[in-house]
Amino acid sequence: MSAYAKPVEVLIDELGRLPGVGPKSAQRIAFHLLKVDAVDTQRLADALQDMKRLVTFCDRCFNIAEDTAKGVKDREVIDLTLGDSDTSLVPGSAGKVLCSICTDSNRDSKVICVVEEPKDVQAIERTGGYKGLYHVLLGVINPLDGVGPEQLKIKELAHRVAAEDIQEVVLCTNPNLEGETTSAFIASKVLAPFGVKVTRLASGLPVGGDLEYADEITLGKALEGRLTMS
């Protein structure tokens, strides 16, 4: 079975675990990487490591956030090896990591848009029409995958609605069965007691579609015409 050198096989195996990469694509990518310069593979390896080290989830909305404290610490290590002892400027790790949207004082902090994944935040940001905050669930209710409400950031959403001065929650899960069900769960079972205004994206998005693939105009219109659920 081991037709290739061990390191190549390990790489093909690792690549094959990525979403959307089948064994054939994994092979193609591995052999491509075998041919390119070491500088290029190093850049890819660095990018992967930096992402894991420097990027984390926002402690408030679970969007992706850059962990600046960690970044500075890492630089400190590098500085030390270079013999530079001036490290007094390192800020103390202030505890909470917030994303660029949560820290932007121009955003309307009374509206929360609930999405499934960080990539949906990007899709909505691209429309340029939304000025509120977000809350990323990091998934949807999906019993077939063993995912229930407790595996998602739903409790955290309830805490935010209780603690922050929120006037409207816009449910922007994908318009498919699991997305709709998750929104229905949040509206009827989680937010109902708070008496907060809950809205849903207006129709216009293709049923069974993916927010990520909706074009900006359609998504923008759907956001404008949102419907009140409670």
Binding site: P143, G148, P149, L177, E180, A184, F185, S188, K189
Partner: peptide
């Protein structure tokens, strides 16, 4: 309660 609440939503759908 959480499980029953989830079941409610699937029932309706």
């Amino acid at each position: 309660e959480g499980e029953l609440a989830t079941l409610d939503v699937w029932d309706k759908r």
